[in-house]
Computed example of a mutant assay.
Amino acid sequence: MLTGKQKRFLRSEAHHLDPIFQVGKGGVSGTMLRQIEEALEARELVKISILQNNEDDKNDVANQLAEGTAAELVQLIGHTVILYKQSVNNKRIELPRKG
């Protein structure tokens, strides 16, 4: 579980990133989750855009993405989801210490 300080740090790190995945009309699929997991392993921090034609609630989509990839939901702002998952082999982001 991320602390508020860690989430603020990750939000600032994600600010310059462009969304690399889009959730459209089909919703969240298993293939999409696998691709996002691979991207998280490589990058640790990803932005995902929820398209206007997606009929699901954006909060539900964000939670499905986080649970499906075992990642932390850093932020849902507008229709953009930011996910973080510490990489096993490509650790790049040093989080601020808890407490």
Rank of each mutant, 00 (worst) to 15 (best):
S49H: 14
E55C: 02
V23T: 03
R34M: 11
T31N: 12
T3P: 00
F9T: 06
E44N: 10
T31G: 15
D57S: 03
E67P: 01
S12T: 12
R34F: 05
A66I: 02
G68F: 09
R11W: 00
T3G: 01
V23G: 03
E13R: 15
N63V: 05
V61H: 07
N54F: 03
Q64C: 01
L2I: 10
N59S: 04
G4I: 01
I50W: 12
R11C: 15
E13V: 12
K47S: 08
L17Q: 09
Q35C: 11
G4C: 06
D57P: 00
I20Q: 14
A71E: 11
I50D: 00
K5E: 13
D56G: 02
K47M: 11
D60A: 06
A42S: 13
S49D: 07
L73N: 02
F9V: 03
Q22M: 11
F9H: 13
I20W: 00
S49L: 13
K25R: 09
I48R: 06
N59Q: 11
L65W: 06
Q64H: 04
Q64S: 12
K25Y: 00
L2E: 06
E13G: 01
L2G: 05
T69G: 13
L40S: 10
N53V: 06
D56R: 13
V61W: 06
L65T: 04
F9D: 09
L65V: 10
K58D: 00
A70K: 14
L40T: 09
L40N: 12
I50K: 11
R8A: 15
H15G: 13
V23H: 04
G27Y: 03
E72Q: 10
A14M: 08
E38Y: 10
N59W: 08
N53C: 07
E41Y: 06
E67F: 09
E55S: 13
S12R: 15
L17G: 01
K47V: 01
P19E: 15
A66M: 04
L73D: 00
D57I: 01
I36D: 04
R8L: 14
F21A: 13
G27T: 01
R11P: 05
E44L: 07
D18H: 12
E72K: 05
S29M: 06
L45V: 03
S12I: 09
G27V: 02
F9E: 11
I36Q: 06
E67Q: 12
I48Y: 05
Q64L: 13
D56K: 12
V28S: 07
L33Y: 08
H15V: 06
E13A: 13
L2S: 03
S49Q: 14
R11V: 14
D18N: 10
I36C: 09
E72R: 03
L45M: 10
R11E: 15
T3K: 08
M32W: 01
K5P: 00
L40Y: 07
E72N: 13
V28Q: 05
G27H: 02
H15Q: 10
H15N: 14
N54H: 05
D18Y: 11
L45P: 00
K25C: 02
H15E: 11
E67K: 11
R43F: 12
L10D: 05
K47I: 04
T69M: 06
A39I: 06
